[in-house]
């Protein structure tokens, strides 16, 4: 359960998020949509404190995950990020072998011995629907894979440490239609085990994969509801205009 309460976020003087509150239920897929620059990525990065890496920023409000305020001083950020995985817009495998990419999270978190790691790597690659394509070349560089395969590798890498939440920032925007549909199928299958939050520019994609959708504009959460309802019968006119493609 993710619960954001009255979140404001600033890059220097520029306010990128304005008083955003939102509840996300476990084991659901939530999509964030909205025009470019409206703050979707910024909001997503609140949940694993990736914004902490950017200098000269400021956040107000609370973000609770399973009842714990993740911005509390007592929080161990590394443990938080282990529990809240992230897949980036551009596939970013490490310059290591396919195997080592997936094993990386296990190694840095001291999870298990050699045989455990081997098992978990295989499991994660299977869950990411990549195993059959790479099982014979686990020791090859991750950069020998296609863009779509690299992105699924990054998903496998995130799954390996068994997070409870997975954040995806436009995970398919750099991919061809076939790779995209593979990723969507994957999201569908992962839903049983993980809470997934996905940013997307693709309206159909949001409609296809998500249970709930949040529509952002200029740093505000304009509307947040069940995806079906949002697409069939939105409450606000701006939402209606955006999803029917009248702007943005």
């Amino acid at each position: 359960m993710i619960e954001a309460k009255n979140i404001d976020f600033y890059y220097g003087n520029f306010q990128a998020l304005k008083n955003i509150s939102m509840k996300i239920e476990p084991k659901t897929v939530t999509a964030f949509i909205g025009p470019s620059g409206c703050g979707k990525s910024t909001f997503l990065r609140i949940f694993n404190r990736m914004n902490d890496l950017i200098k000269d920023t400021q956040m107000e409000g609370e973000c609770l995950i399973n009842g714990q305020n993740i911005y509390d001083k007592s929080i161990n950020i590394d443990n938080l990020r282990k529990d809240v995985g992230m897949v980036f817009q551009k596939p970013n495998p490490f310059p290591k072998s396919i195997f080592e990419n997936v094993a990386y999270g296990l190694r840095v978190n001291n999870m298990g011995d050699k045989s455990f790691i081997g098992q978990r790597v295989e499991e994660s690659l299977k869950d990411a629907a990549l195993w059959d394509e790479v099982k014979d070349k686990l020791n090859k560089s991750a950069y020998e894979l296609s863009g779509g395969q690299q992105q699924r590798l990054c998903i496998a890498r995130a799954l390996a440490v068994k997070p409870s939440i997975i954040l995806m920032d436009e995970p398919a925007s750099a991919l061809d239609p076939i790779s995209t549909s593979k990723i969507e199928e994957l999201i569908h299958n992962l839903k049983n085990q993980y809470t997934i939050v996905i940013v997307t520019h693709n309206m159909q994609q949001a409609a296809r994969v998500s249970d709930n959708t949040g529509f952002f504009m200029l740093g505000e959460l304009i509307e947040y509801s069940n995806t079906k309802k949002m697409f069939l019968n939105p409450e606000k006119e701006t939402t209606q205009n955006y999803i029917t493609g009248r702007f943005g």
Binding site: M50, D78, R81, G85, P95, Y104, G105, V108, N109, V161
Partner: peptide
Amino acid sequence: VPQSYREGSLALGAT
């Protein structure tokens, strides 16, 4: 070294 490597690593809980 691309910033995306660092982000990828930190996002997995690496220090």
